[in-house]
Computed example of a mutant assay.
Amino acid sequence: MKYTIDRISEIIVICEDENGDMVKVQASALPEGVREGDILTEADGTWTLELEETERRRQRIREKLRGLTE
């Protein structure tokens, strides 16, 4: 399952899963340097930052915003 980081505090990170449910994750369990909007996957308790998926989604959002301002 894929998760999107919604918000980050020092201890807890709130992620939204593909079903729209919010999940609390210990910040220490995630890869270093994650930020809001990053896409993660989890398998057997190991969290992985999905760089290509994150960039693909960010690009899609930039294109939508550009379309709204033109």
Rank of each mutant, 00 (worst) to 15 (best):
T54G: 04
P31A: 01
C15E: 15
I39P: 09
S28Q: 04
V34R: 10
E18T: 01
R35G: 05
L40W: 00
T48V: 06
R57Q: 12
G45L: 01
I39H: 03
L51H: 03
T48K: 06
G67H: 12
A43Q: 05
D21S: 09
K64S: 06
Y3G: 01
T4M: 11
E55A: 11
E53N: 04
P31D: 02
T54W: 07
M22E: 15
T69P: 10
L49D: 03
A29I: 06
M1W: 14
L30C: 00
I14T: 13
R58D: 15
K64F: 12
R66H: 05
L30I: 00
V13H: 06
E70Q: 07
S28V: 12
G33C: 07
V34M: 08
A27T: 03
D17G: 11
G37T: 02
T48D: 01
R56Q: 09
L68Y: 14
R56M: 09
G37A: 04
L49W: 09
R57K: 04
I39Y: 03
D6W: 10
Y3H: 08
I12V: 08
R66K: 13
E32Q: 13
D6E: 09
T46I: 12
D21N: 04
E52N: 05
S9A: 05
L30T: 00
S9L: 02
R35F: 02
E53R: 05
K2T: 03
E55D: 12
E52Q: 08
V13S: 10
E32S: 11
M22H: 13
E18P: 05
I39M: 04
M1E: 15
T41I: 04
L51G: 01
M1P: 15
D17L: 10
M1A: 13
T4Q: 04
R35M: 02
R56H: 12
D21T: 10
G67W: 10
N19T: 11
V13G: 06
E52D: 09
P31F: 08
L30R: 00
E36S: 09
D21Y: 05
E52A: 09
E42L: 13
D44T: 06
R58G: 15
L40I: 00
V13D: 14
R58Q: 14
E32P: 15
C15V: 14
I39R: 02
E50H: 02
E50R: 06
E55S: 11
D17T: 12
G20L: 02
V34Q: 11
T54Q: 03
E50I: 11
E36A: 10
M1Y: 14
A29L: 03
V23C: 12
